[in-house]
Simulated scan of single mutants.
Amino acid sequence: MSHSPERLHRLLSPGIRALAAASGMSILCGCSLLSNKQEVHVPKMASAEALYNYGVDALHSQRYTLASGEFELLQQNYPYSGYTANAELMEGYAYYLQGEYALSVQQIDRYLELHPTSPDAAYAFYLRALCYYEQIADVQRDQQGTSEAMDALEEVVTRFPQTAYARDAQLKIDLCRDHLAGKEMLVGRYYQGQHSYEAALTRYQRVVQDYQTTNHVAEALHRIVEVDLALGLKAEAQRAAAVLGYNYPASEWYRYTYDDLRDNKLVQSRDVRPKSRPEGLITRMWHFIF
């Protein structure tokens, strides 16, 4: 889920926003060759303030490669300027906007190492987490990136719990968890299709136990019933069906499960919900006696 440059820019501290707002200068003639081989047209003796303004101006006009070059040039030529720390962070932001996530993370890590107590540290951690979040792969592929994104987002929530960054990070954590649960379901269905029932059951149980708040739990419970029936574990199938019926009575997976139990002559009526509330959370419901 991408974030617009305008939205991310508004999340910067008032100090950096004020510096950015002061930019009204045009990019002048001249040239300089940076380490990333991008030609940057600036005066040979441009000041730190001018370089910073050129970078911000380039961001505003969506010339992100040029912007990162301006901020890098400022750091190289004015390492002790009052603009340097801001340029370090803005270079990471420019890399993010280019989709150069590895470069962005590298630059942000450098910024945080040099300025751990900066008033913009929360934004830096958040931007770093977004770099991982933007790289989350489809559930058909390896989900290491999703785990890395979750770790980075959770760090934002832990370090800066009362900020807007934490609130947005929590929403993205929930999406990451749903993504990981979806991967478990994909693998579980594959194993089930191959009649590797024990392996499939492990995947489905992991969804129920570790990803209780995701929208995959109802299907996972239904699949557990299917696997239990395939293994001849009728009592276990009834217990899983009771959990499903209690928690998701309106779900289509509940209807499918009832049909499976009826076909196996395990229910006599339409009501397969438990007679009393199961104890605790779903992770403890396996002990419920149907």
Rank of each mutant, 00 (worst) to 15 (best):
M1S: 12
S4L: 13
L8S: 04
S13I: 09
A18Y: 01
L19P: 04
A22L: 10
G24P: 09
M25Q: 15
S26R: 11
C29P: 06
S32Y: 13
L33V: 10
E39N: 15
A46E: 00
A48W: 07
E49P: 04
A50V: 10
N53Q: 14
L59G: 01
H60P: 03
Q62E: 12
T65E: 13
A67D: 02
F71K: 07
P79A: 02
M90C: 04
M90A: 02
Y95I: 08
Y95M: 03
L97C: 12
G99I: 07
E100W: 03
A102K: 14
L103E: 13
S104D: 09
L114D: 09
H115S: 10
T117R: 15
S118H: 11
L127A: 00
L130C: 08
A137G: 04
R141F: 15
E148S: 06
A149N: 04
V157A: 14
R159P: 06
F160A: 07
Q162K: 14
T163R: 08
Y165C: 04
A169L: 11
C176P: 01
R177N: 02
M185T: 12
Y204C: 08
V207C: 02
V207D: 00
V208Y: 06
Q209I: 13
Q212I: 02
T213C: 01
A218S: 07
H222A: 12
V225A: 13
D228A: 11
G232D: 10
K234W: 04
E236C: 11
E236L: 14
A237N: 06
A240W: 08
N247G: 07
E252H: 00
E252G: 01
E252D: 01
R255C: 00
D263K: 14
L266D: 08
P274F: 04
S276P: 06
R277Y: 00
P278R: 01
E279I: 02
E279G: 00
G280A: 02
I289Y: 12
